[in-house]
Design a protein around this nucleic acid. Structure first.
Lengths: 339, 339
DNA sequence: TATTTCTATGACAACGTCGACAATGCGTGT
DNA sequence: ACACGCATTGTCGACGTTGTCATAGAAATA
């Protein structure tokens, strides 16, 4: 492998001077710089990160620990956001996922440490509380889409589920809906509770009674192996004599089943029932006809901002640990009609 | 940071002996070994990979280059397969995605080289031919879900789209369907062509005439920004006086639209039309009611086998570059009925 | 002209690890 | 007692970089 020394020889300078050129340090004549750069090109020299790290003990690498996120369709955008940030800022990304095993998680922390990672982004697929097992050594960590279980003060970034559900509820209310069904996401998930709360409170603020709301559980059980009642629940809900004119649901995926339940009963969307989702999981929201009105989870921004935040933490910005929240954007399509 | 030297001091041995213990080398007394291990635990020593790499010039790291795969719902299982293999075999994974930009791709190769990666897994989201821009230095590379455009002899692993579509077609034929519709995937994709060929040939072998087949294009255009005609095409197909009794489609995502088109026309699935997908993208195939009969793409295995193959290439197994093909498994659910 | 301040460069050590080789000590066969 | 083989441990240097400090002119100041 061609090293800094071969370049130095070829350019007729010392290795330190080559190092200076590579790192854009001052005190190099234009003429020398060019000679060195030519030698670098000619020899196809590429700096050795390992050597650099060993010398300077800064790896310029972030680790991503996920549970299922990297391997699950929903929130891959978080990873994309992180990667784009890393790309733009010359950082390297080491990625590993626990698959839910805490033994595996411990190994990953160890592996990260052996690579002298600068910081860790702890990402979960569904928003929930977690307890990262950093081990003894304290690596700067930022939590994305989740928050620490203990009261440790780790900075975190989460989507604003409350605001998203509030916007969605208002959207329906503004369009005259006064009987609204709600099919709930797995209650284990932090976001599920917040969305439901927002729905309830917003409806109440508008003067709807609890009896105008038809709230049903759509799924439950351990993440990754939950029981799914959506189709049955939706069918039942839509068969009531006094059925809701609109249905909100925990996420877009559930919405597929609501659509099918409605259509199987001969109901048209949105003429007979309006439907809104949550997430803007486009594989679904755009494939449904009519296309789905939903609230977009800011996954990409979660990743981007999370990386940015981690970077400032690593840089020693001790400022009080933030718990930042990113807004959900309402995406209006054609699955809702005024009544 | 605690190094091998601090451990050596603590245990009262030379650093080389510590090294021996860490690497499980022979010629260490049980007693010494225990003393060293205790010191390692007490001090929380973790080996420095960078130093190890610089000394041995083996990074034990594989790089994954993807176009959109890591950031797209469909084929994340490939990545999961790779990660699981890496995990089981003590390798580290560096991941980067090009987002389709070839400038970005060149940077990634450079970055990988600067980390002295042992090998690269080149993964694409949709099966297609590609032209990896390795640059000057030759890093062992295995292609997953794609194959080299040029006739370079790079080993590759791909799903057996032909066999999958063949199985699916036979499945319908065996159940008495003699009028079959087919809504095509974007023809840019390698798999799309193979699936269609398999459909055509298998139907012909069974004695169906071309006129029994209703083959229509469902989407076209550049990957990531294609035009989608599925809903319209499906609606049209199902309104024909002599409509097909079964519809095959390019992938599960398209199937959502076919379901909705059918239901909007008052047709029941599978009583009035049978439907099969392709991919077994479970977010969709399990959410649809009735659940979708489809062919599962062996994404996970593609990743697992790809990593395994790369490992053997890196280990110097020069054997002729393989082009391996992994079978698709037919997943029978309830969207098909015999006629 | 003498002295100080820059600019441009190089020599050298150190980072943490492991490979090559040397050294020590103990048992075995002669 | 002597040479030999083998198990156990240690010494030393090298990997590719960069930080520290030194050096040598050139330019600026007194």
């Amino acid at each position: 492998m061609v090293s800094i020394i071969s370049v130095a020889k070829a350019a007729g300078v010392s290795n330190k001077t080559v190092s200076r050129v590579i790192n854009g340090e001052p005190y190099v004549t234009e003429e020398t710089r060019e000679r060195v750069e030519k030698a670098i090109r000619d020899l196809g020299y590429i700096p050795n990160m390992a050597a650099r790290l060993i010398r300077s003990s800064r790896s310029n690498t972030f680790g991503i620990i996920t549970d299922y996120v990297s391997t699950t369709p929903y929130s891959v955008d978080i990873v994309r956001g992180i990667q784009d940030w890393a790309n733009a800022n010359g950082k390297t990304i080491l990625m590993a996922n626990t698959g839910g095993s805490s033994k595996r998680e411990a190994e990953i922390w160890k592996m990260f440490q052996s690579h002298r990672i600068d910081g860790v982004l702890y990402v979960t697929m569904y928003r929930r509380t977690v307890d990262p097992e950093a081990g003894d050594v304290r690596i700067p960590t930022v939590m994305i889409n989740c928050r620490p279980e203990t009261n440790e003060l780790l900075p975190s970034i989460e989507p604003d589920d409350y605001q998203g559900a509030q916007d969605l509820t208002r959207y329906l209310l503004d369009r005259g809906h006064r009987k609204i069904g709600y099919i709930r996401l797995n209650p284990i998930l932090l976001g599920a509770q917040l969305r439901l709360d927002a729905f309830r409170k917003t409806a109440a603020e508008f003067g709807l009674a609890e009896s105008d709301l038809s709230i049903r559980l759509g799924m439950e059980g351990p993440v990754g192996a939950e029981k799914n009642y959506v189709f049955a629940v939706a069918t039942e809900m839509l068969q009531q004599k006094d059925r809701p004119t609109a249905i909100m649901s925990g996420n877009d995926e559930m919405t597929i089943q609501i659509y099918i339940a409605a259509m199987a009963l001969g109901l048209r969307i949105p003429e007979d029932v309006s439907i809104v989702g949550f997430d803007d999981f486009r594989t679904v929201s755009l494939a449904l006809k009519p296309e789905l009105t939903t609230a977009a989870l800011p996954y990409y921004d979660l990743g981007l901002e999370g990386a940015e935040l981690l970077n400032s933490v690593v840089a020693g910005n001790k400022a009080r640990p933030t718990r930042r929240v990113m807004p959900c954007k309402l995406v209006e399509r054609t699955s809702v009609q005024s009544v």
